[in-house]
Design a protein around this nucleic acid. Sequence first.
DNA 1: TACGGTAGCTCG
DNA 2: GTACGAGCTACCGTAC
Length: 592
Amino acid sequence: MNYEYITDTTKALEYIKKLENEPFLFLDTEIVVKDFKNIDFFSDKIRLIQLGTQNKKIFVFDLFKIDKEKIKPVLKNLLENKGIVGHNLKFDIKFLKTNLDIFPTLVFDTMIASQILSEGENDKHSLLAVSKREANLELDKTYQSSTWNLENLTEEQIKYSAKDVLALIEIFPSLRDKLNSVETPHKATGKVYEIFKVKNPVSAVEFTFVPYLALIELKGMPISKEKLDSLLNEISSKYQRIYIDFIRQYGVDPFSPQKVSNWLINKLNLPLPKTEKGSYSSQDKVLKKFLDKKPIQKLLEIRHTKKLLDKLKELKQYAKEDTKTTYRVHSDYRQIGAPTGRMSSSRPNLQNITYEIRKLFEAKEGYKLIIADYSQIELRIASEYTNEETMIKAFKEGKDLHKFTASLITGKPYEEITKEERKLAKAINFGLIYGISPKSLMEYAVNNYGVEITLKEAKEFHEKFFQYYKGFKQWHDSVKEKLKKQHKIIVVSLLGRRMKASRFTDAVNYPIQATGSDMLKMAVNFFYKLKGNLDAYIINLVHDEIIVEVEESQAEQAKKILEESMLKAGKILLKQVPVEYEVSIANNWSEK
DNA sequence: TACGGTAGCTCG
DNA sequence: GTACGAGCTACCGTAC
């Protein structure tokens, strides 16, 4: 392995100058981490930056030895203008930004590439796993967790740090070739294509998105200090009070499903249904049928209060002081968290915040939030994806789609549809996206919309739905047909994201959900491309929703750019169906 | 005591 | 014939 360890500032400057002739660089970093379980992007320090070239020369820069201030401007110029190949670059980019104010934007991420190529199947995407798979390279990761703040690093540590970059150099061509051999409906253009010669549009979108996701995490969601702390106090004492009352009165642990079920069956004589595994179910939706009973009311209230309290604690645990009046929480997003390319969010999860808590998320002083979401995006996608003419026409005419469906299956005029009928149609429309069956339609309608129908009625509605929306009927039939012939099939989003599916419900849901996630990521990319110097930053993404924090006087301008970005992304993927969205400027996340 | 599976609940 | 995806907490049985 051809590597050089650099501790001298003058030498460092020389090497950086030489690297300027490369079209792109391979990059990895080593970080001095105080607590491995709790990496702090704001206070932990970069020790090493390793840069490699295509002809396998590797330079290891020791930032604890080199004069950081002297190399910062040249390094910034280098890394912000070159293509960067790395593994899970969100991690490195966050440290480069906080430690050195360096923000690379032209990236090829080998972890993301591996995830795209796995088509939702393989969940092993560490550098170790990918190196083995793509280049039959055995990496030893023992040194990853070694002490990186030694005065003098050992030769083994330096070699280890260089070897990771060698691995990147080895796996890059293989990943790129595989991405380029995937057939797709679009072809990528733009900078990712120009630098790395990657034609695959999904990877172009994902790679462009990587640095922006890093930025979203660094910015974080602002929360009102006063409101979080006071709600936490209030709910905490309420919880203690009702928990103690409950135990005193009934002598049952409300959080033991087993004990609760036994109690409900033996003492209250409730007929509980069974779960899949054969135990008794005491889910909220089951107990809601017995709301006239006081113990049931109390049990449901305890569950709800506990849930609320847990979420508040979770937020408080990750909250960091920002200004005098606001905390910020910096979630950790998995860019490809689901087979469909949807993201997931953790520590804390900012994608399952209830409306009760959203009001705590307030823009900091002098700033506003912009809250934007796509309207009925999955139905629009489904109609475009399947060429369902009746639904496409309704969307084009600007119809309320749930009302429209209700009028189709009831035979009543559009104007005369009642709220109840609209709700039922909404359940059917949603069911369509997930691969509906009459039985689950019946359950879904009552559980989520409180609409009671018989199985016979459910069957009728189901039949009528597919009778009027012939495009959907054909789609479902052809998927069923394919699955009869093959155990596993590949389904493809409108951008070209490929996913393996063996269940019917997956095969119909994945391409729809995936197109939605393609669209959201594209919208984010456009927003950053268009926003220029505006003091406006995306701070959370929730599948079809974008939240921006913006300096007050620039709010209207940023809102327009966000709308333009969402529309542009929508129009690339949906050629026939119009895209609609709701956008508002607000002080907190619960305002509309 | 550590771990994995299950149940339950939240969001899109 | 099957409703889809995610994360977090707590319980509970099993392995050590």
